[in-house]
Amino acid sequence: QEVDTIELTRQVKEKLAKNGICQRIFGEKVLGLSQGSVSDMLSRPKPWSKLTQKGREPFIRMQLWLNG
């Protein structure tokens, strides 16, 4: 299904801030990505339709983390 990447990243940033989790830790533990990649993804999320399967994976992980 289509994911609203802008809304998703907004919710993730909100939860990170609320729980005092830094992007570096979130990136390493949840997404398996560097802090730079995570920062870029959270500040400039690409539309779901423009992402490859590999590009979608971190957003799917974010969704699971939010719902977890």
Score class of each variant (00 low, 15 high):
P58L: 15
R10M: 14
W48G: 00
E14R: 11
D40R: 01
W65H: 00
S34Y: 09
G27C: 12
Q23C: 04
K13Y: 02
L31C: 05
D4F: 03
I6G: 11
V3Q: 12
G20K: 14
G32Q: 08
E2F: 09
L16D: 07
P58E: 11
K46W: 04
W48E: 00
L16G: 12
E28V: 06
C22Y: 04
K54T: 10
N67F: 02
N67R: 12
P45T: 05
I60P: 00
K29T: 14
G20W: 04
Q53G: 08
L51W: 11
K15T: 06
C22T: 14
I25N: 11
F26D: 00
Q11Y: 06
V30L: 02
I25P: 01
F26G: 01
T52E: 03
S49P: 05
V38G: 04
V12R: 09
V12Q: 08
I60K: 13
L51N: 00
R10S: 09
I6R: 11
G20P: 08
I25T: 15
M62G: 01
F59K: 00
L51Y: 02
I25V: 13
Q35R: 14
L64Q: 15
Q1A: 15
I60R: 15
L42R: 05
P45S: 11
K15F: 07
C22Q: 05
I21P: 03
E14K: 09
G55K: 07
E57W: 08
K50R: 08
E28C: 04
Q63P: 01
Q1I: 10
S43E: 13
D4G: 03
L31P: 05
K46L: 11
L8S: 13
G32A: 10
E7G: 11
K18E: 13
V3G: 08
S39T: 13
K15L: 11
T9L: 02
P45R: 07
C22F: 08
N19A: 12
V38M: 08
V12D: 11
L31T: 02
K46H: 07
Q11S: 08
Q53M: 10
C22K: 05
G68C: 05
T9F: 07
W65D: 00
K54S: 11
D40Y: 06
R56E: 00
D4T: 05
M41I: 12
K29E: 14
L42H: 07
R56K: 12
V3C: 02
L66R: 01
K54W: 03
S37T: 10
R24N: 13
G55A: 13
S34D: 12
R61K: 15
E2V: 07
W65Q: 00
W48Y: 00
T9D: 07
S43F: 03
P58C: 15
T5F: 05
F26A: 01
R24Y: 10
K18S: 10
A17F: 09
E57Q: 08
R61P: 00
V38F: 14
P47R: 08
M62C: 05
E28M: 08
K54N: 03
G36H: 15
S43W: 02
L8K: 14
G55R: 03
K15H: 05
G55D: 15
S37A: 15
L8G: 14
R24D: 11
Q35T: 13
W48M: 01
I6D: 04
L8W: 07
L64Y: 13
S43Q: 14
V3E: 12
K46I: 07
L66V: 05
Q11V: 04
S34V: 08
K50S: 12
G36W: 13
R10P: 07
G36R: 14
I21D: 01
Q1Y: 03
L16V: 07
R61D: 01
F59E: 02
S37L: 15
A17G: 06
L42E: 04
N19H: 12
N19V: 14
Q1R: 11
L33W: 09
E2M: 10
N19S: 14
P58Q: 12
G68N: 10
I25W: 14
W65G: 00
W48V: 01
Q1S: 14
S49M: 03
P47K: 12
T5Q: 10
R10V: 08
Q23S: 12
D4S: 04
S37D: 15
